[in-house]
């Protein structure tokens, strides 16, 4: 009786393992494509830069609700590829070197490469205000654009402004006040840090930072619910017109740094380089690349 039980158990275990592996379609060579939700600034940027403005993403891309979530999912999924800000790298993921054309040697996503314009996936970061901001906010923005603010940006793995763009540290103390900041999730890490350091330096200013994405920040700016709007993309003309219509003021744009979008894979992935052309085939609708074996030098992590 006991042997029959053991045999039955072994039989069931084998049967279930087969069902799990073949019946459910788990394919270790399959590329698990990870992206962002469609209202994120990063989504729009990646679509325009990689897939093409008039093209569409392929179906079945796992859309994450934040930059950090993308890296987290990739770190837990051996067959995954994902795009997210360079500042979100962890020990469990690897950043690929990116080239424009297939076969070219890729460029490492570093501050120097992005600033020099050699890394293909980098973009400016903005702070928008509706009209001229309050004296307090003006002081804050000037401080962000100064060497002190830019040093923090650098520490958080973003790309600081060039020396020509960097301003002087504003002299004197800002007047008492409160500043509301909302917008880009890409920038939330550094925006929080800026606020923290600034408030320590000038305790008479209170800064509240909210994320939610560039789109949400711009909506808040239009509705007058925020003083500063962080955006990882340029505001559209229609959005600027909305600000004008609601508040009667022109939008003021401040470039405060750059962000490089990194291509993340699992740390055990053998792939090191990828091109924008190949990324288009992976992310785009009707793209030809769906398996790791189609990429040069890649073998799937065990």
């Amino acid at each position: 009786m006991k042997t029959v039980n053991t045999k039955l158990a072994a039989l069931f275990a084998a049967a279930w393992a087969t069902v799990a592996l073949t019946g459910c379609g788990g394919d270790p060579d399959k590329i698990v494509v990870v992206g962002r939700q469609n209202s994120s600034g990063t989504y729009g940027y990646f679509l325009e830069e990689v897939v093409g403005k008039d093209a569409h993403f392929r179906q079945g891309i796992s859309a994450q609700n934040g930059s950090k979530e993308v890296v987290e999912l990739v770190s837990k999924t051996p067959g995954a590829i994902g795009y997210s800000g360079m500042g979100y790298a962890s020990d469990d993921v690897k950043m690929l070197h990116v080239s424009k054309k297939k076969g070219e040697t890729g460029t490492e996503p570093t501050i120097e490469m992005a600033r020099a314009g050699k890394y293909p996936l980098s973009r400016p970061l903005y702070i928008y205000t509706a009209g001229e901001p309050s004296e307090t906010a003006k002081h804050y923005i000037a401080w962000i654009k100064s060497s002190e603010g830019q040093e923090i940006l650098k520490q958080e793995h973003y790309v600081p402004l060039t020396e020509a763009e960097t301003g002087a540290v504003p002299s004197g103390n800002p007047p008492d006040g409160q500043i509301k900041v909302a917008g880009s999730d890409t920038m939330i890490q550094v925006a929080g840090k800026w606020a923290q350091v600034y408030m320590k330096k000038f305790p008479n200013v209170k800064i509240v930072v909210e994320g939610g994405g560039s789109g949400k920040g711009i909506t808040s700016l239009i509705d007058g619910q925020t003083d500063l709007c962080n955006a990882s993309r340029e505001m559209k003309d229609k959005e600027k017109a909305d600000v004008k219509a609601k508040s009667g003021k022109d939008t003021v744009e401040n470039k405060v740094g750059m962000d490089a979008l990194a291509i993340y894979v699992h740390k055990d992935n053998k792939l090191n380089d990828i091109s924008i052309e190949e990324l288009k085939e992976i992310y785009g609708e009707d793209g030809a690349i769906t398996k790791w074996s189609q990429l040069n030098g890649a073998t799937k992590a065990e």
């Binding site: 592996l21 459910c24 837990k76 995954a80």
Partner: peptide, 15 residues
């Protein structure tokens, strides 16, 4: 659940 599904069932994605 996600790691169990990836390692136990050999799925390519756990969610």
């Amino acid at each position: 659940m996600s790691p169990i599904i990836i390692h136990g069932l050999g799925a390519s994605i756990g969610t």
